[in-house]
Computed example of a mutant assay.
Amino acid sequence: MNTLSTFFIFISLFASISHGIEVDYCVGDPSLPRGPEGYACKNPSKLTSDDFVFRNFRGEKQTGGIYKNNITLAFAEQFPAINGLGISMARLDFGVGGVIPLHSHRTSEIIVVIRGTIVAGFIDASNNAYYQKLEVGDVMIFPQAMLHFQVNVGKKPAMAIVSLNGASPAVQQTTYSLFDGNLPAELAEQITLLSQKEVTRMRKLFKTA
């Protein structure tokens, strides 16, 4: 391989590593159309320090609903400063017996327990379940796109913080997808093997949740 070929290979490799790093940040503007790479940037000259701070994790959160939980998202939609940075967070609050039901993201997720005791786990594509009781300070990873869950198994409320490697990782909850969307009841019966009575009960439960 001659020197010129080596030079061009090096330049190509460097370009593939450094492509797209043309601005320091891109605070999203949710009022503008959103593309596949995120929101368009706000005018940098109009930004202040407040644009880079998220305060909604403060204080106590009221848990409730059929799952006795409260989820506070810090995705690009709620925290535009992370737009384009490939990261996001959420605060999970659990009442006694509270659950974050089976769900998935288009990203990986890491959780750290801040208060209480939970059981957390995921199910891989081979239907192997990996779950563990987690105490304060414990950390667990849920690989990309895997179905995962968290359950408060303690006698007091619990709280955890999660981080995801995407600014808008999406949340698809299995039960809500089946019973709170526009999927016809007949199809829900066929694909879940549940009776008509049970599907009707579940649809009513989630419609009023």
Rank of each mutant, 00 (worst) to 15 (best):
V23H: 12
E60R: 13
G166F: 07
H148P: 10
I123S: 11
Q173D: 08
V162E: 14
K207Y: 07
E22C: 08
H19I: 10
E198W: 00
G59N: 01
V199Y: 05
A167M: 04
P30V: 02
P30H: 02
G64V: 03
F122H: 06
E198T: 13
G38K: 11
Y176V: 04
G84Y: 03
M159L: 10
A188D: 03
Q196W: 00
T107E: 10
G35E: 05
L194E: 02
S16F: 13
L178E: 08
D180V: 00
V171C: 09
T175L: 15
K61P: 04
G121Q: 09
V27K: 14
F206P: 06
S45K: 14
T3A: 14
N165L: 01
L13R: 15
A170L: 04
A158D: 11
E189M: 14
Q190L: 11
L4E: 10
L13E: 15
G59I: 01
K46V: 13
N182C: 10
H105L: 11
F14R: 12
Y25A: 12
I118E: 08
A15T: 05
Y67E: 11
E22K: 12
Y130T: 11
F10T: 15
L164K: 15
R201V: 00
N127K: 12
R34L: 12
C26F: 07
N69T: 09
P30A: 01
N182G: 12
V112Q: 05
T3K: 14
V27F: 11
A185S: 10
H103W: 02
P143Y: 03
S16Y: 11
I123D: 07
P36C: 06
K42E: 05
F57A: 02
K204G: 03
H19L: 13
A167R: 00
L178H: 08
L178V: 08
G95I: 03
A188M: 02
E186Y: 00
G154F: 04
N165K: 01
S31C: 03
S45Y: 06
G28L: 02
V119E: 12
Q144K: 13
K207V: 03
S168N: 15
Q172N: 15
Y67Q: 10
A170D: 04
T208A: 13
V119D: 02
F7M: 12
V199A: 09
P101K: 09
L194S: 05
G65V: 06
A120M: 05
I87Y: 06
V151N: 14
I191R: 10
G154M: 05
I87H: 07
A129E: 09
E22Y: 09
D138E: 04
G84P: 08
L32H: 00
V136F: 05
H105S: 11
G59E: 02
D51R: 05
I191D: 09
V151P: 06
N83H: 03
K42L: 04
R91N: 10
V99C: 03
D50P: 03
Q196G: 04
P33H: 06
A90P: 10
V119C: 02
M89E: 00
K207C: 05
L32Q: 10
G154L: 06
T48E: 05
A167Q: 11
L178D: 09
M1D: 06
Y25K: 08
S108L: 07
G84H: 04
